[in-house]
Amino acid sequence: MFQRDEFQTVAVPMKAARAAIAVLMVSVLAALPALAQTPGATPSATTPGSPPPDTAPAIRPGQATLSLSAQFSGNRKPVRSGLVWRVLSESADGSPPKIIARSSNAEPSFPLDPGVYLLHAAYGFASATKRVTLGAQGLTDRLSISAGGLSLAGSIGETPIAPNLLNFSVFVPLQGNSEGRLVASNVKSGELIRLPEGTYHVVSTYGDSNAIQRSDVRVESGQVTQATLHHRAAQVTLKLVAGPGGEAFAGTAFSVLTPGGDVIREAIGAFPQVILAEGDYVLIARQEGQVFSRDFKVEAGRDRDIEVIAR
């Protein structure tokens, strides 16, 4: 499990990506110990339900031992978990290499016949590849991976947004297109994503309507970047009532529109809840063939009831 208390927090300025209201607060943690203990890493022996560690087969006569490890390219600290190793053999006829061994240990050892092998180490979405020659005396080698971690969160002002209400998508920007290539979708708040070093475009969706913020984030090799995207939105409860403060009519069909008439959200019920970005809206309520409406305003962080009077 990713242990946040093993880091020293260092404040890092971050430039907001397109929207002037999208403010990004980023802290980069000196993450080498914790990056080695992130979700998806090999569980410790004390973790309930931990799988047994990989066991290397016994070495046979004529074989040699290939011992591997990996380091972060930025600071050359060892990668202690989260790795998936593959050893591939190359055939003489030019056919694609074949996987002959694999391991999820941080520092695996493989008993192999002497020869030329292709090594591949995967660390989340990052990886490194190297060709090595194994002699009769054995070989110890280390691969360098240019990768870091990204952990995302959201807030309204200084108030954190509940993780179950947030969803993130991470893109690799391309020239002229910030959302050039999707890297990860449906990322949850607090989830750690292992990524190659570089700049990424993050899209944060609060709720399921139009409360969306965007920003660019830089991931450094050997570090975990924690980024909080600040939303300007609120949760409103829609009601159709006979009078102010009255009981809500069941089975009411609601439509939330922009002042220009674009539909933002539709819902049915006595008091459905909707998360909306800060701004002006028109609410239409339909009940038993009758249509009622009112204008309303959403202010960031101000959750409230929006009543439509049935008259």
Rank of each mutant, 00 (worst) to 15 (best):
S178I: 04
E179D: 05
E179K: 10
E179F: 10
R181S: 14
R181L: 13
L182P: 03
V183P: 00
A184T: 02
A184R: 12
A184G: 00
S185Y: 01
N186D: 11
N186L: 05
N186G: 05
V187Q: 06
V187R: 05
K188L: 13
K188G: 05
S189T: 04
E191G: 02
E191H: 08
E191N: 08
L192V: 14
L192Q: 03
I193C: 02
R194E: 00
R194M: 01
R194G: 00
R194L: 06
L195C: 02
L195Q: 00
P196V: 00
P196N: 00
P196T: 03
P196F: 03
E197A: 13
E197W: 01
E197G: 03
G198Q: 02
T199P: 00
Y200H: 07
H201Q: 11
H201L: 07
V202K: 12
V202T: 09
V202E: 09
V203M: 04
V203R: 09
T205V: 14
T205P: 00
T205A: 10
G207W: 11
N210P: 04
N210K: 08
N210G: 09
A211I: 07
A211F: 01
I212E: 07
Q213D: 13
Q213F: 05
Q213L: 01
S215M: 09
S215T: 14
D216H: 08
V217H: 12
R218A: 15
R218S: 14
V219I: 15
E220V: 11
S221D: 10
S221R: 03
Q223D: 11
Q223P: 01
